[in-house]
Computed example of a mutant assay.
Amino acid sequence: MSKIVLNQGIRLSLMIITLGMTSVIHPGADAQDTPPIFGDITINQQFSPDPFTVRGMSGGSVPGRKVAGRAETPTGPCTGFVDTTPGHTLNLTNRFEYLKLLVESPQDTTMIVKGPGGTWCNDDFEGKNPGIVGEWLPGIYQIWVGSYEKDKYFPYTLQITEVE
């Protein structure tokens, strides 16, 4: 499990526990050389680095529309297949007038975000990569990154940015 905290662009604490090994990135360490895998992210406005990047593996066996509770949202279709649990939890401590989440993967991926005010889905925001842009309320958001094909798992990076 990972825990990432970004406050006013100056603090970063991260703990990764993988296969019984523990790694800690201390404040001032260059976390962007090797983005963390999965985990919980907490950010305030004007976080740093921007964009902030985390990694994961897309896919699962549950249809995206089942997790989202619908087939379509204003941000796009709830397609693809995901795991039952989200790959990331994003805690926004403030309201963001603009925030963009963008997945980058060599394969076709999808995204579902559940949080304050509703559920949002996307597929093919930039090419075959999903993304969601807009105004975000403070609170906790669950993020699933899916694969277009059932039981296919692909590496991805999730970028979070305040920059338009």
Rank of each mutant, 00 (worst) to 15 (best):
P36Y: 06
P36E: 09
I37V: 15
I37D: 13
G39A: 12
G39N: 09
G39K: 09
D40K: 10
I41S: 02
T42W: 06
T42S: 15
I43G: 05
I43T: 03
N44F: 12
F47P: 09
D50E: 11
P51I: 00
P51T: 04
F52C: 04
V54Y: 07
V54W: 03
R55E: 15
R55K: 15
R55S: 15
R55T: 06
R55V: 02
S58G: 13
G59E: 01
G59K: 00
S61R: 11
V62L: 12
P63R: 08
G64I: 01
G64P: 04
G64V: 04
K66I: 15
V67L: 12
V67C: 06
A68G: 04
A68D: 02
G69A: 08
G69Q: 08
R70H: 08
A71C: 05
A71N: 10
T73Q: 04
T73R: 07
P74N: 08
P74E: 10
P74F: 06
T75L: 05
G76W: 04
P77I: 15
C78W: 00
T79F: 00
G80I: 05
F81V: 02
F81T: 00
F81H: 06
D83R: 06
D83K: 09
D83S: 12
T85C: 04
T85E: 15
P86V: 01
P86H: 09
G87D: 08
H88N: 05
H88S: 03
T89E: 07
T89G: 01
